[in-house]
Simulated assay, not measured.
Amino acid sequence: MPELPEVETVRRTLEKLVIGKTVERVSVLLKRIVQLPDDTEAFALLLQGETIRSVERRGKFLRFMFDQYTMVSHLRMEGRYGVYGADENMEPHTHVIFHFTDGTELRYKDVRQFGTMHIFPLNQDLSELPLKKLGLEPLDDSFTLEAFRDKLGKRATKIKPLLLNQEYIVGIGNIYVDESLFLAGIHPEREANTLSKQEQAKLYEAIVATLNEAVAAGGSSVKSYVNGQGEIGMFQHQLKMYGRKAEPCLTCGHAIEKTVVAGRGTHYCPKCQPLKRPKAKRSGS
């Protein structure tokens, strides 16, 4: 599934390709992609004559800002956007086509068919599902150390599933949680409320640094991800932990181990990320 760096890369690419284009008509070839309105003809009619003014992102969701409406798009597992000439051959698994007045088309392709699209009155999407319950944006100015510490609070849950929870912090995803925890030297099964203030600060800095580096590299093409121009990301060549089971740790040389935490494959170095257990309190005499 594309995570924050991949979705941000798609956003930046699409911004160069579709800003200022006006929709002449919309073809919906697979109804299940369109969630709101649930009538595909109504969906197409709302966007007819609308111009794309900007492309924004909230977590792993793309937000297409039109004159009067916001279209929220979730790529899920393998959703892709691409801009084509109207005379170019249609690729298999193309499910939604936005035909522009200039003769080009924005096509949405999704092999797994898990992607979704919702239309809301302009900016109303932020107060409605699926966006209203999303947590802190880790690349936003509002993501401060104090805000991060507040989200961690005194929660006794393991740190990895907490970081994966989109209601706390959005968009990090499995790859970048493993990378961030390694950079901070924190075991993925540490309980959040056992982290010292120094460890919280190291983890905060690791998250910001990892995501910024991933965005700069165009994301990670671990499976099938490409941006809006069909280009793969390059951050997979910089991964220090994820997907490197049994390979030597780049810091200490110890073999990287893989386990399952909260149902997700998890990579860590047992030497660089020791699992520290809280000391038992002595009983009173």
Rank of each mutant, 00 (worst) to 15 (best):
F98A: 02
E3S: 07
L126W: 08
D178T: 14
V7K: 03
L183I: 13
V261M: 01
E205T: 12
E128P: 10
D141I: 15
R80Y: 02
T157C: 13
L131V: 03
R57E: 10
A201D: 10
V10W: 01
Q124S: 12
K158M: 11
L152F: 04
L126C: 12
R107F: 08
Y268H: 12
T104R: 05
V177E: 05
Q113N: 05
E24Y: 14
V96W: 00
D178G: 12
V260L: 02
L45W: 02
D150R: 01
V83A: 09
F148P: 06
L17Q: 05
N227K: 08
S27F: 02
E146F: 08
R57W: 06
V26W: 06
L275P: 00
E191T: 11
L45T: 08
V18F: 03
T40W: 03
R58G: 10
S283P: 13
I256L: 14
V222H: 07
N89L: 11
T101Y: 01
E213D: 14
L126Q: 14
Q229G: 02
R244E: 11
K276D: 06
L4N: 05
Y268R: 06
M1W: 12
P248V: 11
L36Q: 15
Y108Q: 01
K151I: 10
Y225N: 07
T210G: 12
G230R: 10
E191F: 11
T210K: 08
A209R: 14
Y84S: 07
L106W: 00
H95Q: 01
S196P: 12
S221E: 08
T40M: 04
I207R: 09
R57M: 11
N123A: 15
V28G: 03
D102G: 15
A246T: 15
P37D: 09
I169F: 00
E257N: 13
C269H: 01
V83R: 02
V111K: 05
F148V: 05
D125A: 10
L30E: 03
G82K: 11
L139C: 14
R264D: 09
C272H: 05
T251V: 14
T94S: 06
T266E: 09
C272V: 07
D87S: 11
P92H: 02
A184C: 09
T210C: 14
I33F: 05
E189T: 09
A216L: 13
K21Q: 11
Y84L: 11
D140I: 10
E179W: 00
Q35M: 08
L62E: 04
E91W: 04
V260A: 07
P188K: 02
V226Y: 00
L163H: 04
L152K: 04
A209M: 13
V111L: 09
K151M: 09
Y84M: 07
S54K: 04
A201V: 09
I33G: 04
R80M: 09
F148T: 05
E78V: 07
Y242S: 15
Q166A: 10
H187N: 01
I19D: 02
G284C: 15
T70K: 02
L122T: 13
R76L: 05
H254Q: 15
R11F: 07
Q166D: 14
Q200W: 01
Q236G: 12
C269L: 02
